[in-house]
Nucleic acid binder design. Structure first.
Lengths: 192, 192
DNA sequence: ACCACTTGAGACATTTTCGTCTCAAGAGAG
DNA sequence: CTCTCTTGAGACGAAAATGTCTCAAGTGGT
């Protein structure tokens, strides 16, 4: 046996599968289970052995995305230094998960029926808190609400991932581009 | 008879149908034709009478979105005044189409197979031109490429539409929020 | 060599969605 | 009223996707 997951013997690298699935679904949100399986380089049967169905796969991706975001936020030490620098760190840390994020954001569009994962709310709160800290310290302007800045962060990270996939922006530049645009827009300026 | 479209007698308001369809698809990108029809308040049969199939519907929505964008760009008079003011006008004009845009952007994700509609390229060029004009006049910073600022505009407009749908930002504020964030981020600052 | 376990391939029934069709009801013009 | 045209409702088969199952092959440990 090679790996034990949830008390079940498993060999394929679950994380690897999830990542490849995320990449495929980012590229084409309506991918078939068959397409996802092929992108993950496993058979459809194996894919079903790991995830009970499409819903379970999406939920696992959601879980992964939330985990990556929380890890990024931990690594970024949002409470330290200036809000500006913390935001810069957050964007740099969150960038590897940008593709997954972009997919999840579009997938989450209006969670009709069941409630959305509480994890998203937790993330929103922490990010909004960062912006609010910047507003209270005078770094950020107060006429752009923290809620909007939070949304804008998600949007720009998603756009960035998409721009990189499309080859419109170099991967090495995207983190800087996002940070500069967001910080420049959020920053309180002394000149008119 | 009430309306003549493409030499065929039609009564339902095609534009209205497209708008409702766009709203539904923005809310849930994987809506079935039945859900779209119900959202458009017509029967599935009638929906099929107007659009040969799902692809035709999407393509019609794409056409509508491009038209609205071009109309918005015309109304915004991108070449006049400062680039900043032109951008502000563009955002204000494009805002009514934001929901449709948000859907089309996600739908367009990597056009595997056939080439994307040339209209998008035309729009991109015009928007990028505006940003470039701002850069050349010294209004906008040059370390954020015009291509990225264009992507960011799409992303922020989409995020804005989504934030409004979700009730996180008031509809009356969103145009200002987008413009201020984008212009503030793009603006060249004299202070450090 | 033996055994436990996992994988890929494919068959299979089921479900969902699609596209087409028919027909009765209703609206509007002449 | 009468005629024409459009619509909604539903039936229908075709196509696609899903979920389940079986079985041969392969892997790795003992």
């Amino acid at each position: 046996m090679s790996q034990v997951v949830y008390g079940c013997l498993m060999s394929v690298d679950r994380d690897q599968v999830l990542r490849r699935a995320a990449a495929q679904l980012t590229r084409k949100g309506s991918s078939t289970m068959d397409e996802v399986a092929r992108a993950a380089r496993i058979s459809r049967a194996t894919l079903h052995r790991h995830f009970a169905g499409r819903d379970a796969l999406i939920r696992a991706l959601e879980e992964l995305g939330i985990q990556e975001c929380e890890a990024a936020m931990g690594a970024a030490r949002l409470g330290e230094d200036s809000a500006q620098d913390a935001l810069r760190r957050l964007i740099r840390e969150i960038e590897p998960a940008a593709g997954l994020l972009a997919f999840l954001v579009t997938e989450n569009q209006l969670f009709e029926g069941d409630a959305q994962h509480e994890g998203w709310a937790r993330l929103d709160v922490r990010i909004a808190e960062l912006f609010r800290r910047g507003q209270e310290s005078g770094e950020f302007r107060i006429d752009l609400s923290a809620a909007w800045l939070t949304e804008a962060l998600y949007g720009l990270v998603g756009s960035g991932a998409w721009a990189v996939l499309d080859g419109r922006v170099a991967a090495k530049d995207i983190s800087y581009m996002i940070a500069e645009l967001l910080i420049g827009g959020a920053q309180r300026r002394v000149e008119s």
